[in-house]
């Protein structure tokens, strides 16, 4: 125990580089897990879309394209802010980093707001699967199935996003109390990886849900 302790170094590691690389790898492994988690959903969607192309296309046209585009751009902007935040921290600009994290947070919230309004509209139009579902047309059953998958897929994405928002709040606090700085940026790097991954999922979800059936 006489060894000199570097601040923030955990006992099982030799130095901060090893620690950072390890947690970085850990996050990549986690991301590959998540790939398969959403992969199952994408497979279910593909199989059923293949079976009921007309119903799924009909349903997709009930989603608001503009709101979808706005949400996508908001999420891309949050990705941009996140990357700036990490670059700033590495280059010792803690203030910019804090600001950028705040920007990420704000863009994430805007996205959630837009998605919430989409949910509300779907509810208003009786498109939420279950007892209150109403749709007039021969494809009602398949439209309901589309909306089920829509809610499950975007719901899990939103859940991931919300967790990400919590992580970013923690990062902001850590930056504020100087626990994250140019020498110790590992946690923010890992958080950024996660955040970008959440962005990737949406980058795939948006075209899958909104665009595939044609408008």
């Amino acid at each position: 125990m006489a060894q000199t302790q570097t601040a923030g170094l955990q006992e099982q590691f030799e130095d901060l580089t090893q620690q950072r690389e390890t947690s970085n790898l850990g996050m990549w492994i986690f991301i590959s897990t998540e790939c398969l988690f959403f992969g199952g959903l994408f497979l279910a969607f593909t199989v059923l879309r293949h079976a009921y192309p007309v119903g799924f296309a009909t349903a997709a046209r009930h989603l608001d394209l503009l709101s979808g585009i706005a949400g996508t751009v908001a999420l891309l902007a949050s990705t941009l802010a996140m990357s700036i935040g990490l670059a700033a921290l590495r280059n010792s600009d803690r203030f910019l980093s804090f600001l950028a994290c705040f920007g990420t947070l704000a863009c994430g919230l805007i996205f959630l707001g837009l998605e919430g309004s989409e949910y509300f509209r779907a509810w208003h139009e009786h498109l939420v699967p279950g007892g209150s579902f109403q749709f007039i047309g021969p494809e009602a059953g398949h439209v309901q199935m589309f909306f089920l998958l829509y809610f499950v897929m975007t719901g899990f994405h939103a859940l991931h996003l919300t967790i990400g928002l919590g992580v970013i709040v923690c990062m902001m606090l850590l930056i504020m109390i100087n626990r994250l700085h140019a020498e110790r940026y590992g946690p923010l790097q890992v958080a950024a990886l996660y955040w970008h991954f959440v962005g990737i999922i949406w980058t795939l979800l948006f075209p899958t849900l909104y665009l595939l059936g044609g408008r």
């Binding site: 590959s32 897990t33 398969l36 988690f37 992969g39 499950v152």
Partner: peptide
């Protein structure tokens, strides 16, 4: 790591 998440999503569905 690569198989379990598929079970997780399956159980959710």
């Amino acid at each position: 790591v690569l198989a379990t998440p598929v079970l997780a999503i399956l159980l959710c569905l």
